[in-house]
């Protein structure tokens, strides 16, 4: 494997966003790119990352390899990179280590690190293609704000999408709270757009602790996409450049 990333910051942000949810995971490398799929310890949430080969330049992976990496170790090394550094990941065919090289584009500084790999027996889950009842895209910062505001009142949030809009509501010991967003197009600031595509109304309840955790990815993309259907996990997607993505799935709360 040899994969060169124009900005080390991208990988740094991705790992930073998921490291509190999953600890040890396999980075599955093949000629289409680098993928990661991992559940949190309690099997409530699933992280799915895809960094497509096109996100790297160049990208070369001659043989499929799984790099088992402890994310807190990876984060320690990624913190040694300057945000603007060029990052090259390298690994052999049957690797014991993954090699990370940081190059400054402005100076002649070159730093090199090896991280010891681990054997991780990780099961891959099959994520079915789903036609979601509601797909909401909104500013990532707005979603983060709503989750952070509501967690002050309650541990869970009901997300209800109707043709009127999308309502995030919660109730807790001190009282209730709700934030409603309607579809909104801002021609001058399209990054503030809220788009709600609805085939049928849907209402589901989720743990806010996990949503707040997902929102650590807000720095990766201006927009977040929420996809909901009755009785299936919520998809929270941050789209990255070159069709790469960071997706989180969250199992709904069940029964009453």
């Amino acid at each position: 494997l040899e994969a060169r990333l124009e900005q080390a910051n991208l990988l740094k942000k991705v790992v930073d966003a998921i490291k509190d949810l999953v600890q040890d995971c396999n980075f599955d490398c093949n000629d289409s790119g680098i993928a990661l799929q991992a559940m949190d310890n309690s099997h409530v949430a699933l992280v799915s990352m895809m960094l497509k080969a096109e996100s790297f330049s160049p990208f070369r992976c001659d043989r499929n390899i799984a790099l088992g990496i402890n994310l807190s170790s990876l984060m320690k090394v990624l913190r040694c990179a300057q945000n603007e550094d060029i990052l090259t990941l390298k690994a052999d065919d049957a690797p014991d280590v993954v090699n990370l090289v940081f190059e400054s584009s402005e100076s002649d500084r070159l730093s090199e690190y090896d991280i010891k790999l681990m054997d991780i027996d990780q099961e891959h889950l099959g994520i079915p293609e789903t036609e979601y009842s509601a797909t909401i895209s909104m500013p990532a910062a707005e979603f983060q704000r709503i989750c952070r505001d509501l967690i002050a009142l309650s541990e869970s949030v009901a997300i209800e999408a109707t043709k009127e809009g999308v309502k995030f509501s919660c109730s807790g010991d001190i009282g209730n709270g709700a934030v409603t967003l309607r579809s909104h197009t801002n021609v001058e600031k399209p990054e503030l757009n809220v788009d709600i595509a609805l085939s049928e109304p849907v209402a589901l309840t989720f743990s806010l602790k996990y949503l707040v955790n997902f929102c650590k990815a807000s720095g990766l993309s201006g927009t977040v996409k929420l996809c909901l259907s009755s009785e299936v996990p919520l998809l929270v997607e941050y789209t990255l450049a070159s069709n790469s993505y960071l997706r989180f799935y969250l199992a709904p709360k069940i029964g009453d």
Binding site: H43, L125, Y249, P252, K253, I254
Partner: peptide, 14 residues
């Protein structure tokens, strides 16, 4: 009281 769903009940093992 609502319980928490398990992601493995929705996405089967590959």
């Amino acid at each position: 009281k609502a319980g928490q769903g398990n992601i493995m009940n929705f996405f089967g093992k590959k």
